[in-house]
Simulated scan of single mutants.
Amino acid sequence: MSDSNTSAFTNPSTFILQGIPGLETSYTWISIPFCTMFIIAILGNFTIMFIVKTEPSLHEPMYYFLCMLAVTDLVLCTSTIPKTLTIFWFNAREINFNACLAQMYFIHSFSAMESGILVAMALDRYVAICVPLRHSTILTNRVVAKIGLAVGLRSGILALPYPLLTRQWPYCRTNIIPHSYCEHIAVVNLACADTRLNSYYGLSELFSVIGVDVIFIIVSYTQILRAIFRLPTKEARLKTFGTCGSHLCAISALYIPDFFSSLTHRFGHDVPLSFLILFANVYLLVPPMLHPIVYGMRTKQIRDRLFLLFTHKER
């Protein structure tokens, strides 16, 4: 591993990921929950996709969107956590410059894609509760496929400026990234140039994509709540609202940490760097881990199919 990281250069062939500065002596202990959550996320999301694929009764828009969410979660956690674990276990800190930009692109693209899928799931809940008799005619398989394609294209296109802008800057001070993965701002801060354009684009993308998605979800749930409150009995209201529980948990797991992480990285100058980096890693791990658990526990069809799967194997 090269240590000549402070010599002058403009196009580094590699960056050096520092990991979590200040917590080097705790890497072994930190790696245990990280590796555990990563394994749960991988197994859980693959299990969700397998159950939906093999159970014909789950071939509905809600579960198609859930599979899209599972794929997104798998890409998000596998694009960062394996490299982070190699830093913890083997001190393998080097990352190719192009690989760093690719990692940056995947993080931003699939984070935005996850948000878009949650909007699609909010649309599914709105149609199922507000116009249930037209659900099968509105959200056909063709429409679901078009929504998935639109979400993917939007996310992929809007994430392109991150690596393209980052690539154009000269890096003449150091190639040591004080992070465990190629986080956008952490990389851009190494450039010897005025990189405010990157910061402005990051904020505009955050509020125009995530912000618009949140507004759409709020409008959807406003209409959903209005429909629920029109139901005649308390039991009917609770049962109907219960069908939204998993989706609301997924929304909370994504948006609250997302806004906190993005804003503290830009404005949290008094927050310890080690906490910011640790939180940034946990943020990319917790939603992929929680989504299959939440949907598996709260969705009766998936829970029953999972039970049958394991009891059949035991026989």
Rank of each mutant, 00 (worst) to 15 (best):
A236T: 06
A253Q: 03
Q103A: 00
W89I: 13
R142V: 08
Q103S: 00
D124L: 09
T86W: 04
V212Q: 07
R196T: 15
A159G: 01
M297T: 14
P272N: 11
G19T: 04
Q168G: 10
L43K: 11
R303K: 10
I217S: 01
W169F: 15
P178V: 10
Y201G: 11
Y181E: 09
L276M: 13
L309Q: 12
P21R: 09
A150Y: 10
T264S: 15
S26R: 08
E205I: 13
T174M: 05
L149N: 07
M37Y: 06
L225R: 14
S155I: 06
E314V: 15
P56K: 05
M49L: 12
K239G: 05
D213E: 15
T47R: 12
R134D: 14
P288R: 09
N189A: 04
C77M: 00
T86I: 05
C192L: 11
L238S: 11
I16T: 14
Y126C: 03
V187I: 15
Y295R: 00
P292T: 05
T166S: 13
A236F: 01
L285N: 08
I87C: 02
T137I: 11
F34E: 04
F229C: 11
T166C: 13
I42D: 12
E235D: 10
G202Q: 13
I51Q: 05
V52Y: 12
G148I: 12
S115V: 15
A193M: 08
Y181M: 12
I16Q: 00
R315E: 14
F207H: 11
A99L: 06
A102C: 11
N141Y: 11
L254F: 13
A128F: 03
P21K: 07
M297F: 11
S199C: 10
T195H: 06
L203M: 12
I20D: 04
L74A: 04
I16K: 02
F15K: 04
S180R: 12
N91L: 05
L190P: 08
F15T: 00
S4I: 13
Q223R: 14
A8P: 11
F46Q: 08
F34L: 14
V209P: 01
L278G: 15
I107Q: 02
A120N: 14
F65Q: 12
M121E: 11
A120R: 04
G211K: 02
I302M: 10
I42Y: 06
V144Q: 00
Y105F: 14
P163I: 01
I228W: 06
R196A: 01
H179Y: 13
I51S: 07
L225S: 13
C67M: 07
N175P: 02
M62H: 12
E183A: 13
A41D: 02
Y126G: 05
